[in-house]
């Protein structure tokens, strides 16, 4: 456990369908300031529920979630969400708004002056390496990778210190996915963000995150740096951790060596 984490989950529980399904079950976890945490799990593992609990899109049945020591149940949910950046699965950009309006939405909600928003939009487009001329276009005119860069820019617009990402790169082709992941990791460092990323892909989690948490059936099975997780006793986590290496070995055998 990291001392005095920025985000702390304390015995958090959340059930659905009259608590017959325990989506999150007595989960405790801390995320330190500046850390990049990946939460890995299959579908139904409860990872998305945990993320939605973090910005109060839903409320827990049990336990407490603290951000900077404060119980978020005591914080106004609207203010909380405006202060936390969220990157949604496949972008979820508003199709009726221009790219500029999509990026500037949270500052607009916060009452930021129009000229300041315009300047911020240009700055963000630059930051996520998009052409400034794109700001007048609409989401459907962009490629999937471009859209998700806009999604990242939108999440960062109000200068949050925490970013939540829900399978952000899942629907992209491998090249775009690699580039976007690396670029985001650089941004995470540069802006001193604290990031929680949900993914079902252990390879992506290992490559991008400082620390990985593995969830299954609503429970936290293990957490730690990739190196720590490789030492686990848990058979599921162990199997999961061995997958990238096994794949790498097969790829190694299948592909001719570089320069050969």
């Amino acid at each position: 456990m990291v001392p005095s984490p920025l985000i702390a989950y304390e015995h958090v529980g959340k059930g659905f369908d009259n608590s017959r399904i325990k989506a999150v079950d007595d989960l405790s976890l801390g995320v330190a300031k500046g850390e990049f945490l990946a939460i890995v799990g299959g579908s139904g593992s409860g990872k998305t529920t945990l993320l939605r609990l973090t910005n109060r899109l839903i409320a827990p049945d049990a336990g407490i979630i603290r951000i900077a020591g404060k119980d978020i149940a005591q914080v106004d949910p609207i203010a909380l969400r405006r202060g936390v950046g969220t990157v949604f699965q496949s972008g979820a950009l508003f199709p009726h708004l221009s790219i500029a309006d999509n990026i500037g939405i949270t500052p607009k909600l916060l009452g930021t002056a129009k000229s300041d928003i315009a300047a911020r939009v240009d700055e963000l487009l630059d930051l996520v390496q998009l052409d400034g001329a794109m700001k007048h276009r609409r989401p459907h005119e962009l490629s999937g990778g471009q859209r998700q860069r806009v999604g990242v820019a939108r999440a960062l617009a109000a200068s949050p210190s925490i970013v939540l990402m829900d399978e952000p790169f899942g629907a992209l082709d491998p090249l775009t996915r690699d580039a976007l992941g690396d670029d985001y990791r650089a941004l995470h460092r540069q802006l001193n963000l604290t990031t929680i990323m949900i993914t079902h892909d252990i390879t992506e989690a290992i490559l991008l995150a400082d620390r990985v948490a593995v969830m299954r059936g609503g429970k936290l099975l293990a957490e730690g740096t990739p190196a720590e997780l490789a030492q686990t006793d848990d058979p599921y986590v162990s199997e999961l951790m061995s997958t990238p290496r096994r794949q790498a070995a097969r790829l190694h055998a299948l592909l001719p060596r570089e320069g050969a």
Partner: peptide
């Protein structure tokens, strides 16, 4: 529904 969730997520009332 993903857009409604996104609207909530970016901080809309």
């Amino acid at each position: 529904p993903a857009l409604i969730e996104a609207a909530k997520g970016v901080g809309m009332t």
